[in-house]
Design a protein around this nucleic acid. Sequence first.
DNA 1: CGCGCTCCTGACCTAAAAGGTCAGGAAAGT
DNA 2: ACTTTCCTGACCTTTTAGGTCAGGAGCGCG
Lengths: 151, 151
Amino acid sequence: MRVSAKADYAVRAAAELAAAEEGPIKGERLAEAQDIPLQFLEHILLELKHHGIVRARRGAKGGYWLAKPADEVTVAEIVRAVEGPIAHVQSTPPEAIEYRGNAEHLQEVWIAVRASLRSVLEEVTLADLVSGELPSVVTELAATPDAWLAR
Amino acid sequence: MRVSAKADYAVRAAAELAAAEEGPIKGERLAEAQDIPLQFLEHILLELKHHGIVRARRGAKGGYWLAKPADEVTVAEIVRAVEGPIAHVQSTPPEAIEYRGNAEHLQEVWIAVRASLRSVLEEVTLADLVSGELPSVVTELAATPDAWLAR
DNA sequence: CGCGCTCCTGACCTAAAAGGTCAGGAAAGT
DNA sequence: ACTTTCCTGACCTTTTAGGTCAGGAGCGCG
C-alpha cells in the first residue's frame, strides 16, 4: 500500500509538462525542475509515451509534451502507466479472488479499497494539480483533521 | 499501490480467529482453513502477536486467539502490523514531503489518498468481516457499478 | 551533407522486498 | 519425560525498486 518513487516522479514530471505553455520541454529541464535523476526520468517518460500520455521529439528543439489536454489526464492514468493496476491483491485483481470460510467478505473490502483509491486518483487531473484547484473529494479528505497525522 | 500476500493472509487468519468461539486455535487449523502455507503463516501470526493484536500459548491445547474483542480490531491495524504505514510515498509519509514547482499540490493528493484508504480500512472490524455486515462506507463503494470492473 | 542535440533502448547493477522454507529451541500440558 | 505447539533466526529464490551506462536513431540547422 505504498506509492513508488517512480509513480511520484511520473506525476511530478507530468505536472511540469502540464504547466508548460511553450513547445516541447527537454527531459533535462523536467529533471532539474523536480529534482529527479535524469536517466531514470527518461525511462519513465518513455513509459508514459508508450501509454499515450506523453509525446516526444528528438533533436535540437526536441523534448516532451502532453499527448492530451492537461484537464483530460488523470493521476490514475499516470500511476497505472508506471505501476500497473491499482490495488491488486497478491498481483491479481480483487474481483478475481475467491475467499473461503470466514474471510468471504474480504473481497468486498478490497473492492472498496480500490474504489476509494479510484475515487481520488481518477478525479484529479493534471490541470487541477497545476492550478491548485483540486476536486472537492480531495479537499474534503485533506481537510479532515486526522488526514495530516501519522499513524 | 498493491496489497501484499502477507497482508491478505494476515487479515484472513485474523478473521478465522474472530469467528472462533472455542479457546485457542492452532496455526495448522488456520492454515488449512484459509489455505495459507503454515510456516509462513506462523511468522505472520508472530508479527501480529508482537503488535498486540493476537495472543498465543504453546503446547497441547495451545494456539492463537485475538487479544481484543473482534469488534475492536480493524483491518487497518492488521495491515499496518505486517506492511507498515499505509500510503507512504517513497517510503516517507506524505505530510513530510516537500514538493516544488508545479507539483506543489501533489502533497494534498497523496494525503487524500491516504485518508481515503483509512476511511475504509479503519472502519472495517473483524466482527464486520465475519458477520458480513460491512460498514456503509464499504457497501456503498462496493455498490457502485464500476467498482467490480478492471481497468 | 554533416553535425550536434535530444530522445530511445537495452543491458546492467545493487539493495531491498516478497514470499517462502528449514532447523532447532522453549514453553505448556498430560 | 514426552508430546505438542508456538517461537525464532537463518537461509533461500525470484521479483521489484531505483537507479546507471553505453550506444543508436531521428530531428533540425548551418
